[in-house]
């Protein structure tokens, strides 16, 4: 395990959630759950973040925003969809304004179920995401290795 998974900095984006999941995400930062134990920090800045935590589904207003945030994060990065809204659209799925879950826009790595998702499962989801982060890092390094191997 490299330092990558010991220091996951998250960016929390509230897409079109009912605020139920948001409060649970923030609860993770409170003394009771204290995610900083795992080195998790809420950065509020895509350029510093490793994990994009999204609550709520995609609508026409936040579509571009989600894409922008995702593209402004440096690789390797993972996306965690928190709550069923983020996973599939949830109870709002049929609404006129909702496009669907986050995965209709950007690739999602971990789905955290629940309405609202409990802090324990959110933390669990983020910790799951870390191993994916490590995998992605390795894939990132791969082409370079092949290239250098080719030269020899």
């Amino acid at each position: 395990m490299s330092t990558l998974s010991k220091s996951p900095w998250i960016l929390h984006y509230d897409a079109s959630s009912c605020n139920g999941c948001d409060i649970e995400v923030l609860a993770c930062l409170s003394p009771l759950y204290d995610v900083e134990r795992f080195g998790i920090i809420n950065t509020g800045n895509p350029k510093h973040a490793d994990v994009l935590v999204i609550t709520g589904g995609v609508n026409e207003q936040n579509r571009e925003v989600i894409k922008n945030l995702y593209h402004q994060m440096p690789d390797p990065k993972v996306v965690v969809a928190v709550g069923i809204c983020a996973s599939s659209g949830g109870v709002f799925r049929e609404c006129y304004n909702i496009v669907g879950g986050i995965d209709c826009l950007i690739p999602v790595d971990v789905y955290v179920p629940g309405c609202a998702a409990r802090p324990e499962s959110i933390i669990d989801g983020i910790v799951k995401a870390l191993s994916i982060l490590e995998e992605k890092k390795e894939k990132m390094a791969l082409p370079v290795r092949v290239a250098s191997g080719g030269e020899q």
Binding site: T3, L4, P74, D75
Partner: peptide
Amino acid sequence: YDVGKLLQKE
């Protein structure tokens, strides 16, 4: 750990 991670990022 934080700095180590940052150094590994793109």
